[in-house]
Design a protein around this nucleic acid. Sequence first.
DNA 1: AAAATAAACAACCGCCGTCAG
DNA 2: CCTGACGGCGGTTGTTTATTT
Length: 195
Amino acid sequence: MEKKGGSSSSSSSQDAEVRKGPWTMEEDFILINYIANHGEGVWNSLARSAGLKRTGKSCRLRWLNYLRPDVRRGNITAEEQLLIMELHARWGNRWSKIAKQLPGRTDNEIKNYWRTRIQKHINKQTEPFPSQNSELQDNASTSNEICEVGDNGVESYSPTYDGNLEALLGPLSTESNENIWNVEDLWSMQLPNNH
DNA sequence: AAAATAAACAACCGCCGTCAG
DNA sequence: CCTGACGGCGGTTGTTTATTT
């Protein structure tokens, strides 16, 4: 079930030092199964014990951002988007902090979502003229870096783009993204007690 | 219909703070 | 006290997918 031949096609002498690149379904299954039986954490030893030729970091990332059962992917709702914008206006690029306010969402997804979908809209709004502005300046993060308050310190900071976000960004299409397989399939595949 | 371009997404990298030895 | 390993975070890049020409 390998379709990519690139990668580390160097010497074939038991290479498999550390695998990189996209995770295969088999690797996902191994990781899910191992964590189901042993729990998560201690990622380096976990990767070794599970037999994955991955770094602990890679396993952790894959688990936290994709395989974890309570992670939600895709279809950011309008409310979530609004919250992301507000929190980003307040905290800047503190993605993990923002993600904690959005159950099921990961910092990586929020970061990607911000950069791909929100940022350009804001730039368009604040900078209607292309002019000679080559680099993007995120005025949100730089301007309010000063307010380093506690986690519960709710600043009454009014973001630049509050108000009609849906109108600004469009109808928030609720397209259903279909994957060839999703995590639920994997979870349903594994045996109840493989211990 | 095909090519070009843009957008979305997954994953890696380096840096930093923390903690055990 | 110093050092190294580990986990977490944010930035960035590479690849796939969608859209436009």
